[in-house]
Computed example of a mutant assay.
Amino acid sequence: MSEPLDAAKSRPVSGGPSFSFVNRAERALWRAVWFLLGRAVPPPFGHHWRRFLLRAFGARMGTGSVVYASATIWLPRNLSMAERATLGPGAECYNIAPVTLGPGAIVSQRAFLCTGSHDYEDPHFQLTARPIVLDANCWIAAEAFVGPGVEVCEGAVLAARGCAVSNLPAWTVWGGNPARQIAERTSPDQSSINRATD
Score class of each variant (00 low, 15 high):
S192P: 05
V66D: 05
V13Y: 11
S14A: 15
G162W: 00
P43A: 09
N78W: 01
W34P: 01
N194L: 15
N194K: 13
M1F: 12
P123S: 04
D6H: 06
C114M: 01
P42H: 09
T72N: 14
P12I: 03
H124T: 08
F112N: 05
F52D: 10
P44M: 08
T72P: 08
S2M: 09
F21L: 15
E26A: 14
C153A: 14
A144V: 03
T128K: 00
S192F: 08
N78P: 04
A156L: 06
R50Q: 08
L168V: 02
E154I: 04
R39K: 14
A25L: 15
V66P: 02
P178K: 02
F125T: 05
T63S: 14
E184M: 03
A91S: 11
L87C: 06
Q181F: 05
R161I: 05
R84I: 02
P169W: 06
F52C: 14
R39N: 10
G62I: 05
I106G: 10
N177R: 10
T115N: 03
W74Y: 08
V33K: 06
A196W: 02
G116D: 00
R60L: 11
T100L: 03
T172A: 10
R77Y: 09
W171H: 03
P76G: 11
A129E: 02
D198K: 13
N167M: 05
S10Y: 02
S117H: 07
R27V: 04
C114T: 00
M1A: 15
S191L: 15
D119W: 06
W34I: 00
G116P: 00
V13I: 14
T128L: 07
E26Y: 13
T197A: 15
T128N: 00
M61V: 14
F35Y: 14
F52Y: 12
I73P: 06
P43C: 04
R130N: 10
G15F: 04
P76W: 07
Y94H: 04
P17K: 04
R11Y: 11
A179H: 07
E143C: 07
T172Y: 07
W49Q: 08
G175D: 05
A142W: 01
R31Q: 13
L53N: 05
M81C: 10
R130E: 12
L113I: 03
A97R: 00
N177I: 07
H124L: 06
A156Q: 03
E154C: 07
Y120H: 12
R50D: 08
S187Y: 05
A25M: 15
D119R: 06
R60D: 13
Y120W: 12
R50S: 10
S65C: 10
I140E: 02
V99E: 00
L158D: 01
A129Y: 02
L134I: 01
T172P: 05
V41H: 03
G90M: 00
V146K: 00
S80I: 04
R50G: 09
A142E: 07
P131M: 07
C163Y: 13
A179I: 08
Q126N: 12
G104S: 03
Y120T: 11
S2A: 12
T172C: 10
S2V: 06
G90S: 01
R55D: 08
A196P: 04
R130H: 11
H48S: 14
S10C: 03
A25F: 15
